[in-house]
């Protein structure tokens, strides 16, 4: 049983100018102890997806199942405490996700008090200290306020708060994009260690493929509310199929020649992601795609399953539908 299963999820926002199709029919599933990275540029709908799973928004249609329980239509306020305990989140910017007026102890204690009832204050404290040690924070920080901490420390405190209830699914919303390299490495290492030891599942929202490489088991590439490619992380970096994925990869400035070699033959980035208010017809990537064909403008590509040694690799692109079928589709 998957820990999280999302089927044909749609989330539309109605604004004065029209309808924003932030998430427009996506499917994915996440297994126990694994990490799924939702990757995309701003406006791709990855954060909206995460927030629907959290219950910050409710779904427009489709389903979000946590261990076979439908949660897509239950806002966070209506979720039972047992469910809130199971799913926790780490936000992008630790400067705003920690209450500036509280010290580290109070921030983490809030979480422990709610989810570990019946502990005495000393027991709570011991629990907190072991948690801090586990993720590599010194207990000297206990009485510091967020503004007295460095960026990496702040994010680790946010991580400790999210871990305190004992979640099984952790949503990581751009967990390192507000951090410096050295702080990012600390947070990534802590996340890896925690997953190894506690077998927690991560839903990782990010635009940074370097982070994906380090943390993810599976990768889903989102563009304008749809998933265009999905694969195991090794397969993904060895054989990126969708032109958008290739463009993303070849846009990354590399450090070494080995990295350079790994990247697909350079597909120059062009154009910008259009507004999700009126997405392009057919394949939504076609205006930026160097390989766009007639059919791409007219019809949405089917999801093709390509065999790989790491389970299914799916891609939503007409290039991988053979010519015969394309013609049938045209007719």
């Amino acid at each position: 049983m998957s820990i999280l299963k999302v089927e044909d999820l749609k989330k539309y926002f109605i604004v004065p100018q029209g309808v924003v199709r932030a998430v427009d029919g996506i499917d994915f599933s996440l297994e126990e102890g694994e990490t799924l990275a939702l990757v995309g540029e701003s406006g791709s709908g990855k954060t909206t997806t995460a927030h629907v799973v959290m219950g910050f928004y409710t779904a427009t249609s489709g389903s979000v199942k946590y261990r076979d329980i439908e949660i897509g239509y239950t806002p966070i306020e209506k979720r039972p405490l047992e469910l809130r305990k199971e799913i926790q989140i780490v936000f992008q910017d630790p400067a705003t996700s920690l209450n500036p007026k509280k010290n580290v102890k109070d921030i983490i204690d809030t979480a422990i008090k709610i989810h570990r009832k019946g502990l005495s204050s000393v027991e709570r404290l011991k629990f907190m200290l072991s948690l801090l040690e586990h993720i590599g924070l010194s207990e000297d920080l206990l009485f510091k306020k967020p503004h007295e901490l460095g960026g990496g420390e702040k994010q680790l405190v946010a991580l400790a708060r999210a871990l305190a209830p004992g979640p099984r699914l952790l949503i990581l919303d751009e967990p390192t994009s507000a951090l410096d390299i050295s702080a990012q490495a600390r947070v990534l290492n802590a996340l890896k260690k925690i997953q190894e030891e506690r077998k927690i599942s991560y839903l990782l929202i990010t635009h940074d493929l370097g982070v994906v490489r380090n943390l993810a088991t599976y990768v889903a590439i989102m563009y304008l509310g749809k998933i265009y490619e999905y694969a195991h992380v090794d397969e993904f970096f060895n054989r990126p199929l969708h032109p958008y994925t290739q463009m993303l990869l070849s846009s990354i400035p590399t450090l070494t020649e080995e990295e350079e070699k790994l990247l697909p033959q350079r597909i120059l980035s062009r154009g910008e992601i259009p507004s999700p208010m009126n997405p392009p017809s057919g394949c939504r990537f076609h205006p930026r795609c160097p390989f766009a064909m007639d059919i791409c403008k007219k019809k949405e590509p089917p999801t093709m399953i390509i065999k790989s040694e790491h389970g299914s690799h799916t891609v939503k692109c007409w290039l991988y539908v053979n010519a015969h079928e394309r013609n049938l589709n045209k007719a």
Binding site: M54, F56, I76, E77, L81, R84, K85, I87, Q88, I89, F91, Q92, D93, T96, S97, L98, N99, T110, A111, I114, H115, A158, R161, A162, P165
Partner: peptide
Amino acid sequence: PYVWAAKALG
């Protein structure tokens, strides 16, 4: 976000 985090915690 810290308010959302509090909601997520219950």
